[in-house]
């Protein structure tokens, strides 16, 4: 899937920001399906990679719809890559400043946010994550699972290996997973189905020919 992304960006020339925008919109559609009420408070947990960027892109649109938002990021905002940083800037401009949660000890307010919210968006770790889940993401995942709130996972539930479907220490139990381009192997194998919930595949405007070649 990373190769398809690379082909879409480098060979076809689709900017990553555009793919991220469509990924965010796909997540918004999933949230709207589960929680149609635009006044429902939401918590968005983002990592510092592309997956986190998708979460930040969704945050922008959810804010526009009127949802009260709490956005937590597991790393320093000034070290985000170009596209996620762009969305973080937009959110700050809109008055929804993402909160840095750099350590497991700094997750104190998260429990309160999770108790108040109607739905959680998991954009912590994507398909590029390898090895055991590290802090503070591991603690965040445990708290999300403990909250009992419906969870929409972005691309793949955090902590689930995208190739094998095995849990990397701890993994989000999603109600719905919005995956981009093609269904990931990890969502269908081993523990994947139990953690993925309803699987929604959104092409996010990746050219069909790239997807068909990869699926063949």
């Amino acid at each position: 899937m990373q190769q398809i992304d690379a082909s879409a960006i480098d060979a076809v020339g689709i900017p990553r920001l555009l793919l991220m925008e469509h990924a965010g919109l796909a997540v918004v559609r999933a949230v709207h399906h589960l929680v149609p009420d635009p006044s429902a408070p939401l918590v968005i947990c983002c990592g510092t990679g592309w997956n986190g960027g998708d979460g930040l892109a969704a945050a922008r649109h959810l804010h526009e719809r009127g949802h009260p938002l709490r956005v937590a990021v597991t790393g320093p905002l000034d070290r985000l890559r170009e596209e996620p940083a762009a969305y973080a800037r937009i959110l700050r401009g809109l008055g929804v400043a993402p909160v840095e949660c750099l350590t497991a000890e700094a997750l104190g307010p998260l429990d309160e946010w999770l108790a108040e919210c109607r739905l959680v968006i998991d954009a912590l770790l994507g398909i590029g994550a390898r090895g055991a889940v590290r802090e503070p993401a591991a603690s965040m995942i445990e708290r999300i699972n403990r909250s009992g709130k419906p969870v929409v996972a972005v691309d793949i539930p955090s902590g689930l290996d995208a190739d094998t479907g095995r849990i990397q220490g701890v993994a989000v139990r999603a109600t719905m997973t919005v995956t981009f381009g093609l269904a990931k192997r990890g969502c269908l194998l081993a523990e994947g189905p139990a953690h993925t919930g309803t699987l929604v595949v959104d092409p996010i405007t990746i050219p069909r020919r790239l997807l068909e070649t990869a699926a063949a």
Binding site: A183, C187, L188, L189, G192, P193
Partner: peptide, 8 residues
């Protein structure tokens, strides 16, 4: 069947 059911 769902895809994961077919895989299983």
């Amino acid at each position: 069947l769902k895809r994961f059911e077919r895989v299983r």
